[in-house]
Design a protein around this nucleic acid. Sequence first.
DNA 1: TTATCAAATCAACATTGTGTTCAGTGAAGG
DNA 2: CCTTCACTGAACACAATGTTGATTTGATAA
Lengths: 198, 198
Amino acid sequence: MSVHEKMNFETKQAIKNAFIQQVEEVGFERVTVKNLAFVAEINRGTFYLHYSDKYDVMEDLQQELLMELERYVKHVQPLDAFQTLKMGQLYQPFIKVITCIKEHAPAFRMLLGEQGSPSFTQKVKMIFGSHILDRLSLIRKEAQDPEFQQYLQAFIASAILGVIQEWLDKGNENLTVEEMVALHFRLIRFLGNVIGTI
Amino acid sequence: MSVHEKMNFETKQAIKNAFIQQVEEVGFERVTVKNLAFVAEINRGTFYLHYSDKYDVMEDLQQELLMELERYVKHVQPLDAFQTLKMGQLYQPFIKVITCIKEHAPAFRMLLGEQGSPSFTQKVKMIFGSHILDRLSLIRKEAQDPEFQQYLQAFIASAILGVIQEWLDKGNENLTVEEMVALHFRLIRFLGNVIGTI
DNA sequence: TTATCAAATCAACATTGTGTTCAGTGAAGG
DNA sequence: CCTTCACTGAACACAATGTTGATTTGATAA
């Protein structure tokens, strides 16, 4: 634990950036405090004035991003059964999620990537999955069965996050937020058609 | 590297089991060779006769499971556009995947879980995603556009794996393989309906 | 200008896990 | 009976950890 109350914000930020860079480079397990200090250009002792260990940095970073994600998702328009029937309304939370992730792309790319954290991925799914499910259950009573609801949420949230992960992998300049939304419309429409023919 | 050629198979197995148990308990990063040896009830030196470090164990375990998964998935009936039109045919690879994962539930639960490996998860998605996509592109020319195909595969494979992860979490006695398949039919039918009303 | 104080530095320390080596043990099989 | 071989146990140098205490830096404000 740190003894000091107020500390240089930029040092913490430097540590977090070094952390993101190092995890991408060697994977979380191979990150050492020694190397973090070197990359962040601080003394190893200074690290311990801010964090107790590398797990502490990881948690701080995840907390920061999850709160940011909540903030974005919460600012959707209030729920309304009639409005929800419009696709744009149903996907309001989804648009927010894409925007937020694009805003913090390097951190999300790391945490959702091959060297990232499964528990973080799970939490991200929960956050926007529950918001989408809230809207779905307004227009479909079937989506209110708790057992089914749970799997439905896992299904939809995983599908969307899977596409987002692919998008982050490619380097996110490839597609804009609007194109991502259009892509999802196309994917869902495609699936609907396939199902229709069977 | 190990010096010996033939070694006791049970010792390697004991190490792998200890590894699965330890990763679930403390997470991969906190697993130590010292503890693995203790849990597996072998001398620490003996560990190094079989593996060079804990990463080596992780890779061995992943290889073993990925090859097993390939084996299951490959044994599907040959592709045929007419047959593929039947839902059961389209989901042949999917049924194989569920069966294989259920067969090796403890290892998959660990590797696909919150303490698991994102890169392993990615590889599993690729294996069964590509098989499903092969079948889909037989009946839908749209699924042949490489750019779209890539995202479609991520979308479908992630959705299915999301449900499987949920199923593993709950303890897999909860649903049988047949019920899992039925659940997926229901999920896809549900989505089709929702899309239809928009 | 100078005194102050928080933040960062630097060196030293005990501790813990690593990976390697090597002499020894004990059971199975020719 | 004696060889073989997986495994044991103890010792080793090495590297990263987390902590401590003394010291330097630099911004602020009296």
